[in-house]
Computed example of a mutant assay.
Amino acid sequence: MKLFTVGPTQMRQEILDVRHQQVPYFRTTEFSKIMLDSDRLMKKFMNAPESYKSIYLTASGTGALEATIMNCMNENDHALIINGGTFGQRFVDLCKLHEIPYTEIKLDNNEELTGEHFLKVDNDNYTFVIANIDETSTAQLYDINLLKSFAKKHNAYLVIDAISSFLIDPYDMAGNNIDVTILSSQKGLCIAPGLSPVVISERLYEERVKHNNIKNLYFDFNQYIKNFLRGQTPFTPAVGVCYEMNKALHLIEAEGYENYLTRIDSVAKDFREKIKDLPISIPEFTLSNAVTPIRFEKPIAREVFSILKDKYDIFVNPTGGENEDYVLRIAHIGDTNVEDNTMLVELLKKVIEELA
């Protein structure tokens, strides 16, 4: 099996070696040291000061999105949401559910987020600006300068879902005045699903989270922050995934953070170069290095996906909605390289010819 998927990803052997070990008991000083060590590296790579608060949820990324809204926002807020696809819509759905007033910038397929979009909604007071910095369903990488400038103008908190961008594209939490960074283990960390870290700025913690009294036991950030002072979580964490996280972060540190990002960038660029002669196209807007959406000229995407899976044991990401017959998404993270790109592109060419 070979995964060219954005999550779960093709895991490195070093991570698989950790995964195959006995999961240890976790209410120990040894486990606490592992968690605090992971948190140190996580904050180092995202440029988050030590004073920023970390929450490690045993949940999917959507659980972390919802927990963030519950702990940081209330009905007196007004959020600006960038809705450019499936995951932007998820923020909209969550704000509706929790009765948080919002305005959305709704992007059409292949529409790039620009400063013009912000001018059209710059007639109200906002307390939060919310975006998936890489809208994974389209692979568009939003311009962080547009987001942080608008948030600063309104003195709003900036919430970034970086699940499929952190440890893939350059990311600077403090430098870009980001108040919340939301992550999930199966994407940029390239480990198993089940763990979703959230990092909160000191400003947001002191002004909102610290004084918030939400009616929820499991997702109460204050309990996680209190327990993490000793490197623990209030409830049983995904212990095995926590050990995988520590190993993954140390592998990145050993390679060098900049070298790690450069390698992913080179794999993404190599794939995009190699598909130029195929009867497919890719969007013109800025893409994350995480994934390349390829659009076929004919409605064969689902057939290509099935043939790759069933005949060659190769998995790529399908796309839902109106694009499901035309678009597949090819990930460039995890244990893949330019040689794997060559193999995949040759298979894509073969399958397309078979379906012609």
Rank of each mutant, 00 (worst) to 15 (best):
Arg203Thr: 11
Asp310Ile: 01
Phe87Met: 11
Asn227Leu: 08
Ile307Trp: 03
Asn110Cys: 04
Lys269Tyr: 01
Ser137Gln: 05
Arg329Ile: 00
Thr319Asp: 04
His154Trp: 00
Ile105Arg: 00
Val23Ala: 11
Ala238Lys: 14
Ala192Trp: 01
Asp39His: 02
Glu135Gly: 04
Asp310Arg: 14
Lys269Glu: 12
Tyr326Ile: 02
Glu50Phe: 12
Ala248Asn: 07
Pro101His: 04
Asp37Thr: 04
Leu249Gly: 13
Ile34Arg: 14
Val209Met: 12
Lys33Trp: 01
Met73Phe: 01
Asp340Leu: 05
Phe118Val: 01
Ile214Lys: 06
Thr319Met: 08
Phe4Met: 12
Phe87Gln: 12
Glu273Leu: 11
Leu183Ile: 05
Lys33Phe: 00
Thr319Gln: 04
Leu167Phe: 13
Asp325Tyr: 11
Phe235Leu: 14
Ser164His: 12
Pro299Val: 08
Leu80Trp: 00
Ser196Thr: 02
Asn74Leu: 03
Asp169Met: 04
Asn145Cys: 01
Pro24Leu: 07
Tyr157Asp: 03
Thr336Glu: 04
Thr58Gln: 13
Asn213Ile: 09
Asp143Glu: 10
Glu66Leu: 13
Ser184Arg: 06
Val129His: 00
Met245Val: 07
Leu36Pro: 10
Ala238His: 14
Val209His: 08
Ser196Gly: 09
Leu249Met: 09
Ile333Leu: 09
Ile34Tyr: 02
